[in-house]
Structures are given as C-alpha cells and as structure tokens.
Design a protein around this nucleic acid. Structure first.
Lengths: 296, 296
DNA sequence: AGTTACTGTATATGACCTACGCGTTTTAGT
DNA sequence: ACTAAAACGCGTAGGTCATATACAGTAACT
C-alpha cells in the first residue's frame, strides 16, 4: 500500500511526447512505456473519470506474482483481481510487456535508503545485500524479461544511492558506474543461485516426506529445508551416471572432500560472494589511488 | 509447471534405469529428464524404428533459437522444421520444459577445453571468458528458465574443467566450488549486460537510420553499432524527466564527467569485470594460504 | 500365425494475448 | 446551456501456444 500509488514527480511533463529541444539536440522520441514510467502526469482530459488506474493494475500484478509466481500473472487474472474485464486493462497499460516493466520499477521502490557516512565498503555491502534480499523475497523478479528495459524513477533512485555511497571516493564517474554495474550483476546471479538452491532443497524435503508436488512451502518444516542438501540431485546423478575417468578433476576433489558431500548454499555464501567481489573492488580502487588515506 | 497431477506423460515408457546401478546405495528415483540427459541408451524394443530422434529435435530447436530467439521456439515451429507433426515430438521429449533443459546442456558441449598448466588465474580467466562469449553468441541462453535444472554431462564436464584449473591450488573442495560458483554467477550477469547494451545500440542505430523495427541486425553497419551509445536512452530519459534535486549524487557525478556522456559497455568492460572478480578471488586465496609460493 | 510394444498422426481442449468495434460518460469549446 | 469530441470499459473473436486423448500402422517377440 505504501508503494507507488501516486507518483509525485515534480517533473510533470504534461503530454509532450518527444523530448524537448534543450540545446543538446537530444530530441528523440521515447518509447511510450517511458512516459508511463516517469509519472506521465495525468493531463486532465475529457471523458469519464477513469475508475481504473495503472497503479492499481500494477499492484494487483505484484500481489499475484508474490502469491503464485510470475506465471500466474496473466491479463485475465489481473482483471479478475481488480474486478474488471481483461480488455479494460489495455486502456491503462499498452500491453503485458509494459506491465512487466512497470512491475520491475515498482518493486525497486521498496529498496531502503543507504545512510551516508558509513564508508564506501560498508555502504556498497548494504547496497548489494539489499538487492539480493529483494530478489530472494520476490523470486519472480529474476524471471522478468528485462531485455533493454528502460530505467524507471525508482531504479534510477537506487543507482543514485550507489553514487552517494561512492561520493567520498575519488574516481571518474564512468569508473564508478562500472563498479556499480559489476555489483548489480553479482546481485542478479547471487539471488538466482540462492533461490534455485532453496527450491532444490524444498523439492528434496517434499520427496523425502512423500508429499505431493504442489504442497505449499509453508506446510514444511523450515528446519528440514535448511538441513536439506540442495546438491542431493547432483550427487545422485554423479554417482549413478558419471564416470570418474570422464571427470577426473571433479572426482579427485570429491575424494579429498571431508565427508564426501557438498555443502549447501546459504546466507554464508551470500557473505562470501559480496566480500570477494568487494575485495576485488578495493584492489581496483587502490590501484587507481582512489581511496582516502583513512580507508586503509 | 508442476501442475500436472500424476500425469505420467506420453513418453514415459523406459522406466528401466539406463545407467548401471553400481550399488552405491544412492538409488533414488531421478526425474525422467535426467535419464534423457545422460545418454539413456535406448534399449532396442519392439515397434517401428524411430524416424525422429531427440537429438534432431534439440538441434532444430537450437537453430530456431539462434535464428529468431527463444520466443520462436515452439513445439509447432520445431515440428515444422523437422517435418513432423507437433505431437510427434512428445514421443522423444516429455515436454517443452525438458526440451529447454536438453538445449541448455547441448550448447555447453561447445565450450572449449582449458589447457593445463597455464596457472590458476589465466585458467580461470579463460574459463570465465569462454562462458561469456558463449552467452553473447547465444543470447537466448540467458532467457532459459533454468530453475533447478538438473546438470547434464556437458555442463558437468565444464565444471570439471574448472576443477582442473584449480588443481594446483590447495583449497578444500567446497571452497573451490564456491569460487567456481561465484565466477559462474558473474558470467551470467556480464553476458546479460553485454547483450542488453548491444541490443540498445542496435535499436539506436535503427532509429537513427529510420529503418523499421524488424530489420535484422545483419543489415546494419557493424561500425555504426559499435559507435552507438547504448546509454542514449538513459541520458535522454534523465535529461527529459529527471530532477537534479531528486538524484543529487547522480547529477553531481554527471557534472564532473569528462564529456558529460556515458561510455559504452564493450569488450573492455568484460575484461574489467573479470579482473576485478579475480582480484577478489586472489585476495581470498591469499588469505587462506592457498597459493603456491611462486604465485606472488 | 497372434501378441505386444512402439511409432507418428489427427483431433480437441483450455489458456493465453490482444485487435477491433460498440455503447456510454464526461468534459472542452462554443 | 448545448454540442461534439474524446476517453472509458466491455464483448467478441482470432491467433498462438502446450499438450491430453484416441487411433492406425509397424516391427519384433512368442
């Protein structure tokens, strides 16, 4: 409910679709979805007052995705949720693709503010971790076909936060952007791995307890899920099919394994990933002489 | 989806576990797709000799995906390509989900061997770069819903290669696996960014030259694509809608930008990402005392 | 021979996105 | 106040998709 219900964008650009000629000559027509993303301040027009709104539609889509996954997000289901017919949605959203883009930006609104003055490393760690946690809380985000999705206000705000963290670091802006982009990539992969690993663990618990496939995760013992080995399938496959002469290096490592079994991806792995990447970033910053003297 | 309640599927006949149950006690029923992935040597049975094969189907799917993207990969299109009816495919593949898993493993067969003895860092760089290049060559790979996809022989071989690279490094196997997993994540994000950046550049060239949206990339001047600024949309959006007071840190960095414009993601960014991550890995290895003395 | 298992096919179902056109409602311009 | 334009929500329908089901032909085994 606290999400983007009303976009109070001060940049109220009434209805002028093309960018304005502001000297830079960047007068290029922007996709319609961009206008919808950026406030697109409703210019009072004729006709009946709309009973439905894009925000309502997006909210219903978010609820659906949270409850039943992205596959459940269909125009029909959304229309049902808001109490209208499927075709009514098309008055407020150009199509499903645009809806997904709006969803992607809407979730970014929930990302927290990074407090200033906590240092670049702690700041970047918070920035990265917040995104990973968001990805874990809303696994469907990773399924979004974000191919070349235009940036929305909330996502830009999140980038702005990263630049805020990097404010005391003396580095050209393009280098900062490269670092931020690197962390954003890491986030994507890390939450993906975490989610898949958890899904595998849930599957294993389901199989062991003999419950049907559609059992909701809430019916399971959380401790059992944490204890389950998400690599169980992998191990079984290797033991059943794989030939040691075919994968000599893998089996050699297996042999020296403490208990011959793989360890689960967990919270510790998230910390591991962040710290390794930030170590790399720190090396980069040092090499560029970008760290203040107290940043040793 | 797993909504199929106890639906055995049309192609469920060979319940004979094709692999040799070698008495390790790990006799757990594996998903049917695993059997198809791992050889699953067809036991000569009665009936007409199959004219079609799973390999043909997968190949046709790969061709389709390469030519027109993953969205073009439908059972009907594949059937048309191989000259059979859509339902014929289900005799060789349990469904579309399995087909996608088979595709994912099939492309991994093209990954090269990493030569031994080139050192852990150069080896891991090759390993990482090869994957990124594969992702760029086949962008649809990143759209695959690989949720908890079981590993296939080619993918396991690729993991084995990584363990081969890390052979001289003294590290417990689980730590090696964590490092490999971290790099695999990085690969995912890096190719994704690269692809989206390129797609944006193509779009920009298309718009500038006034060509229709469906124009194949091959009709464009490659030099123009390389020269195009993939951040053009981002810049225009910021200039048109964004308020500097709303994104102070971002605009401050903008102000000190050399030429006030963003730089393109290119080959250099791939190198940057790999080197930063490997720097982090190196710091980790050093901390664990895992590097041989000559590895300074 | 008969039996059995396996092949590819034809038909059908349900879900999905969305183009098109309709009647209705409200406001802008006169 | 009156009119006309514009926007609203809806009904219908068409196309694509994955796949369940029933069927006819074929090859091996008994």
């Amino acid at each position: 409910m606290s999400t983007a219900d009303t976009t109070p964008g001060p940049a109220e650009q009434p209805q002028v679709p093309p960018g304005q000629p502001d000297g830079t000559g960047a007068t290029r027509e922007l996709p319609a979805v961009v206008q919808r993303l950026w406030g697109a301040a409703a210019p009072r027009r004729r006709g009946p007052k709309p009973a439905l709104s894009a925000a309502q539609i997006v909210q219903a889509a978010l609820d659906l995705a949270d409850a039943e996954g992205l596959a459940a997000v269909s125009m029909a289901r959304i229309a049902d949720a808001v109490g209208y017919t499927p075709m009514a949605l098309y008055r407020h959203v150009s199509g499903k693709e645009e809806l997904l883009v709006l969803m992607a930006d809407a979730v970014a609104a929930e990302l927290p503010d990074i407090p200033a003055g906590i240092g670049w490393r702690a700041g970047l760690e918070r920035w990265t971790r917040a995104q990973i946690e968001l990805g874990i809380a809303r696994p469907w985000m990773l399924e979004l076909p974000l191919s070349a999705a235009p940036p929305g206000p909330n996502r830009v705000r999140w980038i702005d936060q990263a630049f805020g963290v990097l404010r005391p670091v003396e580095l050209p802006a393009d280098a900062k952007l490269a670092v931020i982009g690197l962390l954003a990539q890491h986030v994507l992969g890390e939450s993906r791995v975490h989610i898949e690993s958890r899904r595998a663990a849930v599957q294993q618990v389901l199989r062991e307890s003999g419950l049907p496939d559609g059992t909701p995760e809430s019916d399971l013992n959380p401790a059992a899920i944490d204890a389950a080995n998400p690599y169980a399938d992998f191990e079984t496959v290797l033991a059943t099919y794989a030939d040691p002469t075919m994968y000599p290096n893998l089996f050699e490592s297996f042999a020296t394994w403490p208990d011959n079994s793989l360890t689960a991806h967990s919270e510790d792995d998230i910390t591991f990933g962040i710290s390794v990447v930030l170590d790399g970033v720190e090396a980069f910053l040092r090499r560029r002489g970008a760290l203040p003297d107290d940043g040793s």
